[in-house]
């Protein structure tokens, strides 16, 4: 069943751009253009996720979010903001948003973050001691990684990266999502740092094994898992 997404965005052009993109990806999209309508929709019917613009006429985006949370609506929310500063991100996340995107953004980035949010509904992950993907096995207790039963030697930083990939396996992860998730690193360093990390990890994890499990998703990022 298709996931339902509520887009609360006053700028028609951006709203249409998001709606079209999401519809193309198979989501059911409902768009509203001001905060009051947004709040009404969000509390009235069940959505799987909400994309909320920060600056809205009528009722400010952050106020909408606060009102929603006060009304026990736990739907995951991605905030969109034109403020373009790192500070806005912090404020957004601390006031109940699940993720934050600075406008303008690449649609691929929004899509990847939305999918990640939908894959992890509300409930926290259980404490796992072994993470698996296909024939990769990561033991979090003795910090060993095996592929097809064979030990793979990883540097600590490679271990951290792989752990993040395993926890989000079969999801498209953008480079910024990886920087944020693995190193709490909140801006694009402007060089292909992530690509270098990934190519090293790939050499250790995929070379000599079949099938390849670390995939580059063109124009988006990376994915760990079996190719479709």
């Amino acid at each position: 069943m298709s996931k339902r997404i509520l887009v609360i965005e006053d700028d028609e052009r951006t709203a249409a751009y998001i709606a079209k993109g999401l519809t193309d990806e198979g989501f059911l999209v409902e768009t509203v253009h001001d905060g009051r309508d947004g709040l009404f929709h969000a509390t009235d019917s069940a959505f799987d996720a909400i994309i909320l613009d920060r600056m809205l006429p009528g009722m400010d985006g952050m106020a909408v979010l606060a009102a929603m949370r006060a009304a026990q609506v736990t739907t995951p929310v991605i905030i969109l903001s034109a403020l373009g500063s790192v500070d806005a991100r912090v404020a957004g996340l601390t006031s109940g948003a699940n993720d934050y995107l600075v406008k303008p953004f690449a649609f691929s980035e929004l899509l990847a973050r939305l999918r990640l949010l939908l894959a992890r509904p509300g409930a926290q992950q259980t404490e796992e001691t072994v993470l698996r993907c296909a024939d990769i096995e990561m033991n979090l207790i003795n910090r060993q990684v095996r592929r097809a039963g064979q030990k793979v030697d990883l540097q600590p930083r490679e271990f951290r990266l792989l752990e993040f990939l395993l926890r989000n396996k079969e999801r498209v992860l953008t480079r910024t999502m990886m920087l944020e998730g693995v190193w709490d690193y909140h801006f694009d360093p402007g060089t292909n740092v992530v690509d270098v990390h990934m190519s090293r990890l790939r050499r250790k994890l995929d070379d000599g094994f079949d099938p390849p499990l670390l995939h580059t998703i063109r124009g988006a990022g990376y994915m760990l898992g079996k190719a479709d």
């Binding site: 920087l179 190193w183 060089t191 740092v193 270098v196």
Partner: peptide, 13 residues
């Protein structure tokens, strides 16, 4: 340490 981690591979290359 995190920054050194992030840029480590790029530098090593």
């Amino acid at each position: 340490f995190d920054i050194a981690d992030v840029f480590g591979p790029l530098a090593e290359d």
